[in-house]
């Protein structure tokens, strides 16, 4: 079962939720940190990293001996990463999405693929829990290829928890694709609701089953509850504003270990998600 923990707004508690769910589950469990621009799940799970692999995207290099400056590649590049001046093709690797279109269209076979490093995927474990994270290279511009590499590394497991990046743009879409369920974490503030609405539009457009978790539920007001009721969205869990949770977080500890009284709430959340996924599977086309 693949569950993504996402949010519109950043800093609402995605990682807090993701690492605690991952630490709680039973069987073969994977925690995958897809927030590759600033992965931080490792701070709480303290995994032993055993494998580190560089990830690159294939960018073109031009063989000047074969290139006839026909400019077909320049016309084909929808990312504006190529130019042809003075019968010479210039490649701007930072803009390249690695789609391979230019290489496919070149009639002379003058373009070859060359890996341009964008980051690394690290694998390890915390006891029984399998840990994977992606970390982008400083200066790299595009995270989706690295997120895809993280996801491709995840072995089929009983429970796969994907810690998504914030927002609703390409990195989030890349993470959410093929998920069985999406948990949207928010907070009861105007910013929290505004960004939740956008996130809800996104997951609805993608046709993914989802529910909402309200973090620091007793700050702010009841706007998230009202919104979820009006939109008929499952409100899965409300985590109160508790100084001890903040302290646990600041020490890099897990709530389910440091504050056992919250363990049941996380277990209930996991149950609700599992039930919801099974319901979805039981009703074809829903």
């Amino acid at each position: 079962m693949k569950i993504a923990i996402a949010s519109g707004k950043g800093g609402t508690g995605k990682t807090t939720l993701a690492v605690n769910l991952a630490a709680l589950g039973e069987g073969a469990i994977v925690y995958a940190d897809c927030d590759v621009e600033e992965p931080n799940g490792h701070l709480f799970l303290n995994p032993k990293i055993t494998v580190s692999e560089e990830v690159g995207i294939p960018v073109p290099v031009v063989d000047p001996a074969l290139c006839t400056a026909c400019e077909r590649c320049v016309e084909a590049c929808r990312f504006n990463a190529l130019a042809c001046v003075a019968d010479q093709v210039l490649v701007f690797s930072a803009l390249c999405h690695g789609c391979g279109g230019c290489i496919a269209i070149c009639p002379e076979g003058a373009m070859k693929e060359y890996p341009h490093p964008i980051g690394k995927v690290e694998k390890g474990a915390r006891g029984e829990l399998y840990f994977i994270q992606g970390t982008m290279k400083v200066g790299a511009a595009m995270s989706p290829p690295l997120i895809r590499a993280v996801k491709a590394t995840v072995p089929p497991s009983d429970l796969e928890i994907y810690d998504a990046p914030p927002g609703t743009s390409c990195p989030v879409i890349t993470t959410l694709k093929e998920m069985d369920y999406v948990v949207l974490v928010t907070e009861p503030t105007p910013f929290g609701l505004n960004d939740l609405r956008i996130a809800v539009e996104t997951v609805r457009e993608m046709g993914l089953p989802f529910g909402v978790v309200v973090n620091r539920s007793d700050v702010g007001d009841g706007r998230i509850r009202d919104y979820c009721r009006a939109e008929e969205i499952a409100l899965l869990m409300e985590l109160p504003e508790d100084r001890r949770i903040a302290e646990t977080y600041s020490r890099g500890e897990l709530i389910v270990e440091a504050l056992p009284e919250y363990k049941q709430a996380f277990a209930d959340l996991l149950d609700k998600i599992c039930c919801s996924v099974k319901r979805e599977e039981g009703v074809p086309g829903s």
Binding site: V74, N80, A81, A83, C84, V85, A86, L90, F92, L95
Partner: peptide, 14 residues
């Protein structure tokens, strides 16, 4: 353009 406007503008000028 989403990106690379300068590159393609330069291409037009050339």
């Amino acid at each position: 353009a989403a990106q690379g406007a300068g590159i393609q503008a330069a291409q037009l000028v050339v």
